[in-house]
Design a protein around this nucleic acid. Structure first.
Lengths: 147, 147
DNA sequence: GTATCTGCAAACCCTTTGCAATAAG
DNA sequence: CTTATTGCAAAGGGTTTGCAGATAC
């Protein structure tokens, strides 16, 4: 984690910005998480270490994304959800449409599809987002026995 | 198109709801489109035939989605974008991150991935959303010659 | 005739922004 | 010291909702 923090500091400095306690606190909170979260949750996590306003959270998020430490996952329930990029390879999401739990997976065939589609349309592909949705085992079971 | 309208009418009736002029106007506007659109554009399209408030557009959208005539595509620029499902097979999107144009494609390997991931996690898969993004040929060219 | 639906306008919620005070370098 | 950054509170913009009048059936 410390190496990512150093990276973030370098990134901030290189842009001619100031490395503030608030920015570091947000970065640390993001790196400490292993799962998806929204701004509300991130704000609470950050608060545990240092009082930082939501405005600053919102202003720091684009920096973390540009620095490669954070990524938008999907917009749901009227707000954006994020995930840390700390030492994790690219992966996709499998979501239960009932209980909303999210599983992660990756599949090499996606790289092939990405390459082929890029070639076909002449695009310089930068990445992809795949989400598969359905009912998880638990919700399938509950669905059968009734409410 | 008339057959889809009939389908929608059946759907509405079966739910014990009322088949109003407004609902039909929104359904017709959706079916008439072949491309992506947002609520603002849909509202304008509907208005051409009949004055319908935005509130009614918003209230009708979930019905059209449930009826299988409409689908959410992605949330961008602070609002949701939709596409008609009128007689079109499932497809995915290739988007230019610069000019925002969207191409459609489909690939059989996605069905395989969907099936395999579902089996691995025990999910009853309902569908997927794949978006590949990158630079379209035009924007690549413009990028090289400078602004 | 009755219950649902519509339009309007206000409410909501997430996100962004203007500004004076504060802190980084 | 100088300029960027913060917190606050207000503004913004998409979406939802309460309510009285209109409409489907």
């Amino acid at each position: 984690m410390e190496s990512e923090i150093r990276l973030f500091r370098q990134f901030i400095k290189k842009k001619g910005l100031r490395y503030t306690r608030e920015r570091e606190a947000v970065a640390r909170a993001v790196l400490a998480r292993q799962d998806h979260f929204d701004v509300e949750e991130l704000h609470l996590t950050v608060q545990a270490e240092r009082p930082v306003s939501k405005a600053s959270i919102y202003r720091t998020i684009p920096l973390l994304i540009e620095a490669g430490l954070l990524a938008e996952v999907f917009h749901e329930d009227g707000h954006m959800h994020y995930e840390p990029m700390f030492g994790r390879g690219h992966h996709c999401h499998l979501r239960c449409t009932q209980c909303r739990q999210v599983k992660e997976f990756s599949d090499h065939r996606l790289n092939e599809i990405e390459r082929d589609v890029g070639l076909k349309f002449g695009f310089a592909v930068e990445g992809h987002k795949l989400e598969i949705f359905g009912l998880c085992p638990d919700c399938q079971a509950k669905g059968q026995e009734g409410p």
